[in-house]
């Protein structure tokens, strides 16, 4: 299964952290740092698979990543996943992002990080791939976004706002 999905930039700033095993906040941050230190120093001429040897990524896990412009998309998977398959999956995921955001860039991921979560959840759910068809993915995402449209801004939901009867 897929253990976690991380998106971060070259400096190691997180753009998305999704773990399919329960990890507390501090551990997630540690994982991020660990993976960033492993991945960021690899040049593009090296292969995109790494065997986990670190504390948080066990030796049976593999790190599959892709580097797009400023961002690293990292999937940590166990031995039951196909490396090449995951590599393709990352491509599918990024293409899905691109369809939804049109010419996706890092800023889209920053300002719509909730949307990125929703898109990811269409592709990967509970650590398993549920959909690899781009058309299906964007259909589901757009459905979700349509429901949100009435709001003036992306997802301005607040507890306080609810209490005071705004929104």
């Amino acid at each position: 299964m897929i253990e976690s999905v991380l998106i971060f930039n070259q400096l190691g700033k997180p753009r998305l952290i999704k773990t399919y095993k329960q990890l507390d906040t501090a551990t997630q941050q540690q994982l991020l740092r660990e993976i960033h230190s492993l991945v960021s120093k690899r040049s593009d001429t090296l292969c995109n698979f790494l065997h986990g040897s670190q504390q948080l990524v066990g030796s049976s896990s593999r790190i599959v990543y892709r580097h797009y412009a400023t961002l690293y998309f990292v999937f940590i998977v166990d031995s039951s996943e196909s490396e090449l398959g995951i590599l393709d999956l990352i491509q599918v995921f990024v293409e899905a992002l691109d369809r939804v955001f049109e010419n996706v860039c890092e800023l889209d991921l920053i300002f719509h990080f909730d949307d990125v979560h929703y898109i990811l959840s269409e592709v990967v759910s509970a650590g398993m791939v549920v959909e690899t068809n781009l058309a299906e993915i964007s259909k589901a995402v757009n459905e979700g976004r349509r429901q949100k449209k009435p709001l003036p801004e992306p997802s301005r939901v607040g507890i306080g706002a609810l209490r005071r009867g705004f929104v």
């Binding site: 920053i110 300002f111 003036p152 801004e153």
Partner: peptide
């Protein structure tokens, strides 16, 4: 400014909301 958000400061609704709270953006 986020590339795909409609001008947030221009919108009167959002301005009203901003008086009370900061949006995610």
């Amino acid at each position: 400014s986020p590339p795909h958000s409609p001008g947030i400061l221009a919108s009167p609704t959002s301005f009203r909301l901003r008086m009370f709270e900061k949006s995610l953006t």
